[in-house]
Design a protein around this nucleic acid. Sequence first.
DNA 1: ACGCGAACTGACCCTATGGTCAGTTACCGA
DNA 2: TCGGTAACTGACCATAGGGTCAGTTCGCGT
Lengths: 199, 199
Amino acid sequence: MGTTGTKGVARADRRRQLIAVAVAEIGRRGYATTSMAEIAHRAGVSKAMVHNIFGNKVELARACLEEVGPPLVASVAAAQTSTEAGRRAQETFTAIFAALVEHRHAWALVHDATLPQGSSAEQAATGYLDQLHAMGTAGTRDVLEAAGLEDPLDHDLLDHIWEAVVATSVYWWQEHEELSADAMAQRLTRLLAAVTVRG
Amino acid sequence: MGTTGTKGVARADRRRQLIAVAVAEIGRRGYATTSMAEIAHRAGVSKAMVHNIFGNKVELARACLEEVGPPLVASVAAAQTSTEAGRRAQETFTAIFAALVEHRHAWALVHDATLPQGSSAEQAATGYLDQLHAMGTAGTRDVLEAAGLEDPLDHDLLDHIWEAVVATSVYWWQEHEELSADAMAQRLTRLLAAVTVRG
DNA sequence: ACGCGAACTGACCCTATGGTCAGTTACCGA
DNA sequence: TCGGTAACTGACCATAGGGTCAGTTCGCGT
């Protein structure tokens, strides 16, 4: 008995474990700079095993995205109930941070710019991104209409900015793990109010 | 006479040309996914020539940063004169976009997350980033004090958000090259006002 | 005119990494 | 207990990309 041969772990279990490892690693360091060998090593498995299960690197990334994307989108969607823009912003924050308690790297994954262009992984990421984008758009529309702005470019830019604010908050949160999701949502709301105070 | 031999371009000129090409390419696609061969090809020169001038890839990136960082920092610093927060934001926008007319990729370069950790290029980027950060910090402090917020974490988060807003605007601008720097600054100011309108 | 130094390249090496495959081991049902 | 199947690996291949070097060509000062 050497190091070869089965270890008695069911394929489905191994798959889940590898996805968990890959989500953390790709989320933290990005797709391009994360190697198959490293993921395999962290899971205590050979590189060949990873290829056996996922086929190739892109499919691994896609599996990670499909693991992490739906709950994220679902949580944010569930928060889009309040009609008043300010309140909705706050509820969206709360939902996003709550959704990311399980997978703090989900946001980074969906936003990973190093995913190979045109790959199925990038398409999956873009898909989730589009859904999040559409929800953000619904929120910013109210703000612009209230201010009497109708230029579609204004709309587009504000959407991007909104997403950047959320993204930045999520990344910042990753570096302050001691803060709870709720505390983060409150902090964001407080800051938004502070900026809004002076006219 | 084959393809070898000098082409009569002075070393300093070739260096400038290569930096120009590299700034554009690395700024657009990122350090990690841009190859030496591609930069060389775009400049109509062999890969060996690039190595001859810059030594290695990291030093190339550093040269790009030193080309592009100082004018960016200087322009933004020059705008930090107005004391009123609202006005300063606008002037900072104007200054940043004006500074990037020449090097639209400067911001992306300084923010490139794929620069090798610990490399001289990353240190240079961090240096410029710190300077920009410090200036942004001076601006956000007023806003927080006015709102009676003293938590240093609030301060830190707002700094990050401010930077993200600027970065996003710059990236967005790169995809709308038809807009002038002045138009961009005006648009940002308009949006900021729109968000600020409702209390 | 001529030679020397600067500019420049093709061909090469090395490493990292994605990917493949024949073969090994353990689990499990009959 | 024993054979079949699923899990698993070591050793291998291919390619891309950073980096090196001997050697070629041109411009320029004398």
